[in-house]
Every structure is written in C-alpha cells, then in structure tokens.
Design a protein around this nucleic acid. Structure first.
Lengths: 135, 135
DNA sequence: ATACACCCTCCAGTCACTGGAGGATCAGGA
DNA sequence: TCCTGATCCTCCAGTGACTGGAGGGTGTAT
C-alpha cells in the first residue's frame, strides 16, 4: 500500500500539517514511522484515524475525549457503556448549545433586520444584546 | 449612587473577579476608578456594560467584536450599518454552527440508544463519528 | 487584638491550535 | 551536474479568553 507524506495526509483529511504534528506531540495520533531522511510516513489507517479525529473535533469533542474513545476501540471486549457515557454526556452539552444558539439566532435576526440606514442612537443591536436572556 | 467593589460587580454580573480585571487589561472594560487604598470601584453603568459584555460573549461575539460594538455606541450620530454588518456576519456563523450541531445531535442520539450493554466490538459510536459528514 | 473576607499585582498554565524562522531533502528540468 | 521550487524537518513564540494561585495589603466585626 502506498505511503503518504504528511502534506498528502493533510490534503486528504483537511487537517493542517502543523496540526498533524501537534496531534503526534499530544499522542492523539501515534508516532509516525519515518523514512531514512526523517520524514513522517502514513498509511490508509492513519487517514481513517485522522478523519475520525477531525470529525470528532468538528463535532465538539475535546482531544481528551477523542483519546478515550480511540483507547476504547483498542479493547474490543470491553462493555461499550463507557463510550455510550461519553456520547450521552456530550449529547446533553450539544442540546444546550443548540438551544442557546437558536435563541441567539432569533435575537440576531430580529435585530439585524431593523437596523438598516438608522443611526446608532436608535440602533437596536446594542439593546438587544444588553437584554439578551442569560441562560 | 452606591459604589461597588469588584466582588459585588462579579456577583451582580456573573463574571469572575479575575475575568473583570482581565477585561480591564484588554481595554474591554474601562480603567476602573480606585479608592485611596487602590481598590477598584464600579458604578451602575459598569454593571450595564459588563452585563452587555457577558451576554455578548455568551452569544458568541468575540471580545474584539464587542469592543467595536461598544465603540460604535460612543458615536451616536453614525449610521448603524456597521453594527448591523457585525450582527449579520455573526448570524451566518451561528446558523452554520446550528446545522452542524443538529447533525451531530442526530448521530449521538442514534448511537447512544443502540449502545447499551453491548461490546466495544459492536459499538457504533466510533463508526458514526468516523463517518460523520464533514462540513 | 485577632480573625477572616476581600482586595491587590504578577505570573504561570490551559486548550487547541497557528505561523514562522532557519535549515535539510527531493524531484524535475536546462 | 546544477538549480529551482516544493516539501519536509525542528523549535519556538503567539493567539484568545480566560483561570488559578502565590504572596501580600486592607477593612470590618467581634
């Protein structure tokens, strides 16, 4: 199977080169094999792992959560309750974030619409934020 | 009108004492007046400003955005188009985040439900994240 | 007089990167 | 063979938005 250089891995996964090296530093990615001249090489398995990480990050998992999730997959006989617990904990946080963001969207829509061509003195954006519902 | 100490301001706004001092450092809050012994004092205007900042942060505005918004309010004859532009730019970002989070919620729900008492080998969480739609 | 809450400054640490300096290596063409 | 340009390496400093703690001063109630 073809070995990839770090730049190609970056292109395939959408994760920047520096970030891939950072993930290796914090052991979120394993230590990459090297060529004789010291360049990192990667396999298809690394593409998968990094894609998993990238999606997980995008979806709001912390690197530590991702590490535990990945560690769990390396013990396939364990009960997956632990993974489910991580997911459920995360689900609650996600739901909270969604409802806050939806409140916010409503405020922003209401306010951005009424503010064309007016003067700052009458601007409703400031007032709307000042009175935004705080949780 | 009664002067507040920093701790009282913190209590009234839900912003931590250290964070209030940090906001002064980055000039998001003005330099506070001091007592003879050097303690910061605050007025009701500061409560309002900090509440505005707190809500704005909660709603996802950066401290720089908040600074520009506040600066705008100090020129009440200006057109408020600039404020509207900040709000609209922010609205787009909020909408993008909402749709990503809703995708994520669906995945987490689907997966947390099917993962009770099984073994890691059959756990769907990992697979679901690995294939999560990226953007 | 003492206890204790509160205030001060300064500084280091957190998280998840991002960017750049300075230098080595590699592949392709003239 | 030399050169160019892309890519790689390590190391380090910076970002944003805080957070927490050390070490010490102040204010007030008992």
């Amino acid at each position: 199977m073809a070995m990839l250089m770090i730049g190609e891995l970056a292109r395939r996964t959408g994760v920047k080169v520096n970030t891939i090296r950072f993930y290796e530093d914090i052991a979120l990615m394993p230590k990459a094999a090297r060529t004789d001249s010291g360049r990192r090489t990667y396999s298809e398995a690394d593409v998968k792992r990094l894609t998993f990480i990238r999606n997980g990050r995008d979806l709001g998992f912390s690197t530590e959560e991702l590490k535990s999730l990945i560690a769990l997959t390396e013990h396939p006989d364990l009960d997956c309750g632990a993974a489910a617990a991580i997911a459920r904990r995360h689900l609650l946080a996600v739901e909270a974030r969604i409802s806050r963001l939806m409140l916010m969207r409503r405020e922003l829509e209401r306010v951005a619409a009424n503010c064309e061509g007016g003067r700052m003195a009458d601007c409703q954006i400031i007032g709307a934020i000042a009175q935004a519902p705080s949780h």
